[in-house]
Computed example of a mutant assay.
Amino acid sequence: MAVLLWLIAPLQAFNTAVGHLGRWVTIIAMALMVAVILLQVFFRYILNNALPWPDEAARFLMLWMTGLIAPVAYRRGGFVAIDLVSRALPVRVAALLSLGLLTLAFLVLLKGVPLGHAHTMSGCLFKSSSLWLPFTLEFALPLPGMDMSLTLCTRADAAFSITPGWVKMPLALMYASLFVGLMLLTLVNVELLLRSLVTFLGNGAALRPIPQDIVEAE
């Protein structure tokens, strides 16, 4: 039991910290998305001169907003769910049911992560039609224990460089929201699996509660 609690502690700390950051990035992204859409409405319907970039910028913000807030909602039980059965069951039986469902979700996520990575890399072949960056970013960070890396359109095993100069944004930067979101969902799923296992073994009282307001530090 002590081993399980020891495994949960760093995962819980990491998911809480990343969730805190993701929540604030999501708030900023939503505010920017609303501002961009309103700007486009003004130019399209008031000035009769639509801008070329707001639609794509809004999609970019929406995708990253979804990728960062979905793990937070999953961890807090914010997804749509039917929980009448689990609420009616004894605690340990409900934990066993949760353990089974989370195991299925984990298998789906394990399949989804490499697909998300492949989709992100496919975006290296295409550039945005209207969004520009004031620099070229080369980034690669190998993921331990996995035959893939967090990378932005480079075949280098490990790299980080910024070259000034305006370039069209590679669509990989937009598609990466899917890969990052799936990775964070997987880490949350592992934490929830371990928590359900501890509860099933009868030591749920030893678990620290998942903060419902992740702005507050644990």
Rank of each mutant, 00 (worst) to 15 (best):
V91M: 13
R92M: 10
R92E: 00
V93D: 04
V93A: 14
V93P: 02
A94M: 08
A94S: 13
A95C: 06
A95V: 04
A95L: 05
L97E: 09
S98W: 07
L101E: 00
L101H: 00
L102Q: 03
T103K: 05
T103Y: 13
L104V: 15
A105P: 07
A105V: 15
F106D: 07
F106S: 11
F106A: 12
L107S: 15
L107N: 14
L107R: 12
V108N: 01
V108E: 02
V108S: 09
L109I: 11
L109Y: 06
L109T: 06
L110A: 13
K111P: 00
K111R: 11
G112N: 07
L115S: 03
L115T: 12
L115R: 12
A118W: 05
A118S: 05
A118D: 13
T120F: 00
T120R: 06
T120E: 06
M121L: 03
M121S: 00
S122Q: 11
G123M: 07
C124D: 10
C124S: 02
L125A: 15
F126L: 09
K127L: 12
K127N: 13
K127M: 08
S129T: 13
S130K: 11
S130P: 09
L131K: 12
L131F: 11
L131E: 05
W132Q: 14
L133N: 01
P134N: 04
P134G: 10
F135R: 10
T136C: 00
T136V: 07
L137C: 08
E138I: 13
E138K: 13
E138R: 12
E138A: 03
F139Q: 01
F139W: 09
A140D: 11
A140P: 06
P142C: 02
P142A: 08
P142I: 00
P144I: 04
P144M: 02
P144T: 04
G145Y: 03
G145V: 14
G145K: 09
M146R: 06
M146W: 11
D147W: 12
D147E: 15
M148T: 02
M148H: 10
L150N: 09
T151G: 06
C153I: 08
T154I: 01
R155Y: 08
A156T: 06
D157M: 01
D157T: 01
D157Q: 09
A158G: 04
A158V: 06
A159I: 02
A159G: 03
A159C: 05
F160H: 11
F160T: 07
S161G: 11
I162W: 04
I162G: 00
I162C: 03
I162V: 15
T163G: 01
T163I: 14
T163E: 10
